[in-house]
Amino acid sequence: MSLKNVMENWSAYRKDAEAGGHHTYEHRWAMSINLDLCIGCNACSTACYAENNLAVVGPERFAKGQAMHWMRIERYWDVEDKEYPDQGASFLPMMCQQCGAATCEPVCPVAATYHTPDGLNAQVYNRCIGSRYCSNNCPFRVRYFNFYSYYESAWPEPMHLQLNPDLSVRDKGVMEKCTFCVQRIRVAKDKAKIENRKVKDGEFTTACAQACPTSAIVFGDTMDPESKVSMLWKQHQVTRAVYKQHKEDPELRGYRIFEELNVDPSVMYLERVRDTTV
């Protein structure tokens, strides 16, 4: 049955691969993160822990570098050699960028990570065999590996009651990463389908965007021209599927990290602004 399926769909599959993935997307979930508003408070990160059943690994494993932070706030300093910094830090919320041409996808030997018709990089936990090649090939280093089973250590009774039943608790040996809260997407899409309508912008959002106290994170569907996120992308003249943006106004703040690698990230950052005139 399945062999037949492969044979029949072989040419379609091949063309699909040549065209760089799906021809038609149902949605293109994307984000816009305004770095001028990011205050580095970690609310998004903790919200992610709460929503996505992330394991707390504890200090010993943290020291080894085995921590899980699907959403992490990176903090950088300017390199100038001053006695004191004269402005604040540079905060960067970093999570899976759901690349349109993701480098993690082609290298997985079992196709556990693949591109969905929503433009997301799916990670199918139960298919993953833990070769960890995807993580090695991720320029953003946002894939996290379950080096242990965390059932007892991370969720001692009754903490396991908090676990979100809408997504798996990953076992040892499985790679995981930010999914743009696919469980929320799934619920919203199911609901929309049952009500025979399209998913509305703002109907749901990711846990990080929902928590963000300064609303720095905007999540939405760039296929929906009316959505807030596509307005922002348009406003900042950031287009997809290019490795270099050609903007009419080059001063517009939108940019994508590691765009030059031609990975087509789905997260647009807005440059940090610092008022040096005060």
Binding site: V79, S90, L92, E271, V273
Partner: peptide, 21 residues
């Protein structure tokens, strides 16, 4: 968390002046 304090010239976080804004 994180093992680098600088961006190693990566321009991950880009900064503009308020004039540009």
């Amino acid at each position: 968390l994180g093992h680098s304090d600088t961006q190693h010239g990566r321009r991950l976080v880009r900064t503009v002046s308020v004039d540009a804004l």
